[in-house]
């Protein structure tokens, strides 16, 4: 795993996160396009950044067609470099691009790939904890890859409390909004359900303005949980002074998701159960009849792509050719 930086060439900077700079590059031996995430070390008060540690820790273990591949890790001048497969687009970009039409078979295909990737994480006792369209990256061949494991963690060390302040707000499960300290893989399932809804709506499903508003938005859409539908919910730390909304009727959901089939509504409802113990798990979701009814999920290579990006990519190709 420790390889000389000579194996890769860096071409240009494409992004900068809080703890890393991302460059485009090439694996010289194979001419494969890659992304190099250079993690700054020695600039944080407490040493190596927690997000960087998590990303390295989990990506080293997760090898799956629907999880971003960590090609290599190397160090150069005391910097930690993660060599990742190059993924030029993400689902958020496509959702926002109104010129791209989503067919229901496309949505099914993206959802299926997301579920497969998460299923693999959960089987390895890893929670992602930050699923959102922006972290679902798209490969040039159409494969969807789960990325950004900076908030991920291992499941099931019973003696530890987990923090409820994870998952980008709009995709945060109600048990987290209530400040639950013991949560399960169901938090990821919730996020996938909300992403599923967003793929159908082409706009965020539960866009809360702040943490308080998030509770309101969530329950206005899905009903306020009561002891009856979610036993012991009132014991959770942040459960108080809620406005009581009724759960949406089936017809209301049909109207909300006008193009959705009955089976897709069934799956969506199952994924977004307020009580985490009633929410379906990854296996149940993957086995859901929705995936068996017609139309079949679109083959990844036939999925819609971002047009501009492709042009840009070719530009890069050209630049490189001229440089060499």
């Amino acid at each position: 795993m420790t390889t000389a930086p000579l194996k890769y060439s860096k071409s240009k900077k494409v992004g900068e996160g809080t703890y890393a700079v991302v460059y485009l590059g090439t694996q010289i031996s194979s001419n494969r396009k890659i992304a190099i995430k250079e993690i700054k070390t020695g600039m944080f008060k407490d040493g190596l950044d927690m997000s960087a540690i998590r990303e390295v820790k989990y990506l080293q273990e997760l090898k799956h067609p629907n999880v971003i591949e960590l090609v290599d890790v190397f160090s150069a001048t005391n910097n930690l470099n993660l060599v990742l497969e190059f993924l030029p687009c993400d689902l958020e970009v496509l959702i926002k691009d109104t010129s791209v039409v989503f067919k229901s078979a496309d949505i099914k295909s993206w959802l299926l790939m997301t579920l497969r990737g998460i299923h693999h994480c959960h089987r390895n006792f890893i929670l992602h904890r930050d699923l959102k369209p922006n972290n679902l990256l798209l490969a040039p061949d159409g494969q969807l890859k789960i990325a950004d494991f900076g908030l991920a963690r291992s499941l099931g060390n019973a003696n530890e409390d987990l923090t409820s302040n994870v998952v980008t707000r709009w995709y945060r499960a109600p048990e987290l909004l209530f400040g639950a300290k013991h949560y399960t893989p169901a938090v990821d399932m919730w996020s996938v359900g909300i992403i599923f809804a967003e793929l159908m709506l082409r706009t965020p499903y539960l866009p809360g303005k702040d943490d308080v508003d998030q509770l309101d938005v969530t329950f206005r859409a899905l009903g306020t949980p009561t002891e009856q539908i979610w036993p012991n919910v009132s014991m959770l730390p942040q459960y108080n002074a809620l406005r009581v909304y009724p759960p949406p009727s089936r017809q209301e959901l049909r109207n909300r998701f006008s193009a959705a089939t009955e089976k897709s509504l069934d799956l969506l409802i199952s994924m977004t159960q307020l009580d985490p113990s009633r929410r379906c798990d990854l296996t149940q979701a993957l086995l859901h009849e929705f995936f068996l009814e017609s139309p079949r999920p679109t083959e990844p290579e036939d999925l819609p792509k971002k047009k501009e990006k492709r042009v840009k990519e070719e530009d890069d190709e050209m630049n490189k050719r001229f440089k060499v």
Binding site: M1, T2, T41, G42, G47, L48, I53, V56, K57, Y58, Q60, E61, V73, S75, N78, L80, S154
Partner: peptide, 14 residues
């Protein structure tokens, strides 16, 4: 030493 340890661990933490 933190980075040296991480490197000696071959960047595997799990």
């Amino acid at each position: 030493l933190e980075f040296i340890v991480l490197q000696s661990l071959k960047f595997t933490l799990m």
